[in-house]
Write a protein that binds this DNA or RNA. Structure first.
Length: 347
DNA sequence: CGGCATACG
DNA sequence: CGTAT
DNA sequence: GCCG
């Protein structure tokens, strides 16, 4: 805390809580711009020429340089509503609407929520409270890799030629995350359909599955503007909570004296068809703000529509996946390719 | 002054 | 409404 | 809140 980008994130979150999406996005973009800088700001003059930093964000940054903090930000941090919604939304399965509902009922702590018999939690929220302590803790890279070994072992039984890629924040080089994201794919088209159900089943059999939300996704190209590409495809994903044994984490030993020898970890698995791998990887590598900006750029500046499955050119009415195949770009390079497609000159 | 990413359960 | 990036 |  205390950095300009953290301060701007606080303001963004506060605007999110009061459902003011415009200012929320304004502050989020400003925070992202600061985080993208090669070196921290030295003084207020350093923001000259940077995009998305207007008078309001400039005043906040200036206050931090001059006083060590911004009064507006400090005010938000002490605000009862902000503090309460921040706690409520920290529970898996609880978003701004539910948090707001609880706040309006006069509830102020998680203890009050769980002991209130008139509140009916859904399945996701029950898991969120049940494993709250564990899944609130940061996940280390070593823990992410340990989860990876478990999943890879199981997926390899289903299909020995499965490839698995760590995505999300860890793929962007972060040392810690709030969950672990993997992309899994098998070469043979259609075979990926059975992959996640098999992995989930095996986790359950091994007693490692604490929570599972499986999404059978239908990839319907007909919904995009060009009807010629009508096709159904599958793009499965699941949101899990798994039991990670401490002994499975490299450089960590189980605590002998007391308590459990495991930790609950949030894990997301995504299984696109191999053909869609590049777009899935681009979409699951994040960050949230980068994905938003890429899609906004695609649409507003390039007249294209981007999602996790495809890039559609509204001018030519063609999907750009064909480009990848014609150029025979190796799968390992598809991530930079998909990204480059957005920035490179048209050819 | 309008728009702000996009998908699925 | 919630989840994900 | 910032931008086109």
């Amino acid at each position: 805390m205390g950095t300009p980008s953290d301060a701007l994130e606080v303001l963004a979150e506060n605007y999110e809580f009061i459902e003011s999406i415009g200012p929320c996005l304004g502050f989020r973009r400003a925070a992202s711009v600061l985080k993208s800088l090669p070196a921290p700001l030295r003084n207020i003059n350093d923001i000259e020429g940077l995009p998305c930093l207007g008078p309001e964000t400039k005043a906040v940054i200036q206050d931090i340089f001059e006083c060590g903090s911004s009064s507006k930000v400090e005010e938000v941090l002490t605000d009862e509503r902000y503090r309460t919604l921040k706690i409520f939304t920290s529970v898996f399965g609880v978003g701004p609407k539910t948090a707001e509902k609880w706040y309006r009922r006069g509830l102020r702590s998680l203890e009050q929520i769980v002991s209130d018999s008139s509140i009916h939690l859904n399945k996701m929220q029950i898991a969120g409270f049940q494993y709250y302590e564990d899944i609130s803790k940061p996940v280390s890279k070593a823990e992410a890799e340990a989860v990876g070994h478990i999943i890879k072992e199981i997926a390899g039984c289903f299909s020995p030629d499965v490839t698995m890629t760590l995505t999300g924040g860890f793929r962007r080089g972060k040392e810690f995350g709030h969950d672990v994201d993997f992309l899994l794919t098998v070469p043979r088209p259609g075979k990926e359909d059975g992959l996640l159900p098999a992995v989930i089943d095996q986790l359950r059999i091994q007693g490692l599955l604490l929570y599972s939300d499986f999404q059978e996704s239908t990839f319907d190209l007909s919904r995009l503007p060009n009807r010629r590409f009508e096709a159904m495809d599958h793009f499965q994903k699941c949101f899990l909570i798994v039991k990670l044994k401490k002994e499975q984490v490299v450089g960590q030993q189980a605590e002998q004296r007391c308590g459990r020898d495991w930790k609950a970890v949030r894990v997301d698995l995504v299984a696109p068809p191999a053909e869609r791998y590049a777009f899935a990887l681009l979409g699951w590598s994040g960050s949230t703000q980068f994905e938003r900006d890429l899609r906004r750029y695609s649409r507003l500046e390039r007249n294209m529509l981007l999602d996790n499955h495809a890039l559609f050119d509204k001018t030519t009415c063609f999907f750009c996946n064909k480009v990848i195949h014609q150029r025979r770009i190796p799968m390992a390079r598809c991530d930079s390719t998909a990204s480059a497609m957005l920035t490179a000159n048209q050819d």
